[in-house]
């Protein structure tokens, strides 16, 4: 997330100005650290209450956490491998496909924020 020097806070909508907070690397890092902490808390939460479960495997502490983490990692990695085989240029199906076409301008209402 690079900082766009041209963004003048006073040009942005109020909400956008507030969100400019995200524009700094340090704050993004703070969010990430916050996520780590939340995850750690959630993981330990498993030891603090009685689970009502149907399956044996669910009782394993942090099962949902680990399952979510590793399955997602596996998902991304296998998708990345799939891409090696499946990726084609954008105009592969052209002209029988919308992928490489511009969206017709007359159906849009392009407006830049300060324009």
């Amino acid at each position: 997330m690079s900082i766009d020097q041209n963004d003048k806070p006073e040009d942005l909508p109020t909400l956008g100005r507030a969100l400019l907070w995200l524009d700094t690397k340090k704050n993004v890092d703070r969010i990430v650290y916050g996520l780590y902490i939340v995850c750690a808390i959630l993981f330990t939460a498993d030891f603090l209450y009685h689970k009502h479960v149907y399956l044996g495997v669910e009782e394993f502490p942090g099962f949902y956490a680990l399952y979510g983490f590793f399955m997602c990692a596996a998902l991304v990695i296998s998708a990345k491998i799939m891409r090696l085989f499946l990726k084609r240029p954008e105009d592969y199906y052209a002209p029988y496909d919308v992928e490489s076409e511009k969206y017709p301008e007359d159906q849009l209402e392009r407006k830049t924020h300060d324009g």
Binding site: V32, L35, Y36, V38, C39, L42, F43, A45, D46, G62, Y64, A65, L66, Y67, G68, F69, F70, M71, C72, A73, V76, I77, A79, K80, M82, R83, L86, K87, R88, P89, E90, Y92, Y93, D97, E99
Partner: peptide, 27 residues
């Protein structure tokens, strides 16, 4: 737990650059 650890996976993969970037392509 499930959701936040999935988010964690995303964050980790993103930060390590393993996450596949968005590319102009069809699959």
């Amino acid at each position: 737990q499930l959701l936040f650890f999935s988010a964690l996976a995303f964050t980790v993969l993103m930060r390590t650059g393993i996450y596949p970037p968005e590319l102009k392509s069809v699959n």
